[in-house]
Design a protein around this nucleic acid. Structure first.
Lengths: 260, 260
DNA sequence: GACTACGTTCCAAAAAATGGAACAAACGGT
DNA sequence: ACCGTTTGTTCCATTTTTTGGAACGTAGTC
């Protein structure tokens, strides 16, 4: 196990739920001996990846992570294009929009477009969620080959909310449905009372894959309103697919050849 | 030299000016042998700190940097971040700090950080002052476009203290000086016997603009002491600008046009 | 088909990480 | 003030990576 891996393991202990950690927290979460934890934390602090509160002595992500994070926007074209369209849809429908990418079998929120409705923002950028329990997560999975999906979903199928696919067979049934219609939906899954609809968008050039979704309160929307969201998403998807050269027929692996 | 240091050295090669790099770029910038560069880049890519464009094979900061960056407290909010830094500077220099925002051609005090020196707080939060007669007021104005400045300053140029710019031409001369140096100063203007130095800080994300200043008694400080304040402000400005992603080159209108 | 820019893999030497144990410092209860 | 506990740091012999020169691939080009 390389020094880098250990460093990353520590960095991965931080999350929106746990934005700062004590020495002991890190030791428990990584399961490493005290001496190793001590040395690693000092290295990370010295190089700017972590900072330490002088008073509480707790660690949190450092200035360097912030600076590097800002650079990730660089590969923006696809995302910026999608975000512009999503803003229009959110303005018209009043709902909240999300753009996310797939990482393993989780999705990570990249952008959020707050809606005008009282439904509060609950998934800040950087938030991770299992892709199998969200609409755009499943939409992205649906764009992978069956083989690739099988490789990403843990062998020990995770425990999921009642409305989500309960096993691999149910998951594949829903993904096939998405492949057929092009649009994915979810209700009462990741968050109680929240529904969403989404689709996946691939870039013909780079092979990047992103998920775009609109979420709303299930109670506060009518069937008619949700049908309207579906229409909006459908035409946004069509427009974006033309703009980005999305080769709908192909799986992402065929496109990229090298996906990580 | 640890593995971590090498990794950081590579990550530091990326910047807004160079958001993606080829293998050769990295090799030149780090001055490392090809073999080391090759192995390091692969490690960084495998652990998510870098991504590689499948087509161009160029590297760019990866999803992990994005996630970690979101956890840095600079995202809390601009004013809280600035206030934390300002407290440090006030503690070291003993002078009083102010944070203000621009409203029309006036500035409004938002926060005060009392110093330890006998000079008493004179501008309580909420206090309005014409921006053209304070150091951070002028610093904020200097970040606007010339056109925007003209629109904010009343056509009938107000009556101001003797040390303040007496007309629009003098004002622009001082603003251009601030644009050049990044730091603004004032003495015997809004308040007799009180001097201050300040700068403006913009958020790259939200386009917000705030002014940060330190004020002191002109009689009770030496030239050396004031030079020290200037140094303190300079390094605080540099640090905050990195933390907030302040795009110094752009005017605020350019920013806001993109953001909102 | 040779030439070249661009990368990757190999391997023995060199450097760094590891983790158990001793050590140190801060805290809490009595 | 005393003792036990929690929390971290430092030491050091052993193990594991890392290192970088050189050999080895792989396109693209003339």
């Amino acid at each position: 196990m390389s020094a880098l891996t250990n460093a990353i393991d520590i960095l991965r202990c931080f999350s929106t739920a746990r934005p700062d950690l004590s020495f002991a927290d890190v030791q428990v979460l990584t399961g490493k001996p005290k001496s190793s934890t001590s040395r690693l934390l000092r290295s990370l602090r010295d190089c700017g990846l972590l900072e330490q509160d002088p008073h509480s002595r707790r660690y949190r992500p450092g200035l360097l992570t912030f600076e590097l994070g800002r650079l990730h926007r660089a590969h923006d074209d696809l995302i910026a294009t999608a975000e512009r369209e999503l803003r229009d849809v959110c303005a018209r429908t009043g709902h909240t929009g999300y753009i996310a990418v797939l990482d393993g079998y989780q999705q990570v929120v990249l952008r959020i477009v707050p809606g005008s409705n009282p439904l509060r923002v609950v998934n800040p950028p950087g938030q991770r969620t299992p892709a199998i329990i969200t609409s755009n997560g499943r939409a992205m999975l649906a764009r992978l080959s069956d083989q690739e999906i099988r490789a990403r979903v843990p062998l020990d199928y995770p425990k999921v909310p009642a409305n989500s696919p309960q096993n691999f067979t149910e998951l594949m049934a829903r993904l096939n449905e998405i492949r057929r219609t092009g649009i994915s939906d979810a209700a009462d899954e990741a968050i109680e009372g929240v529904g969403s609809q989404g689709f996946a968008l691939a870039s013909g050039e780079s092979g990047e894959l992103i998920g775009i979704a609109v979420s709303y309160s299930v109670q506060a929307t009518t069937e008619i309103e949700r049908a309207n969201v579906r229409r909006e998403l459908g035409s946004m998807a069509a427009k974006l697919r033309r703009m980005t050269g999305d080769p709908l027929g192909q799986t992402i692996e065929q496109l990229a050849g090298l996906a990580s």
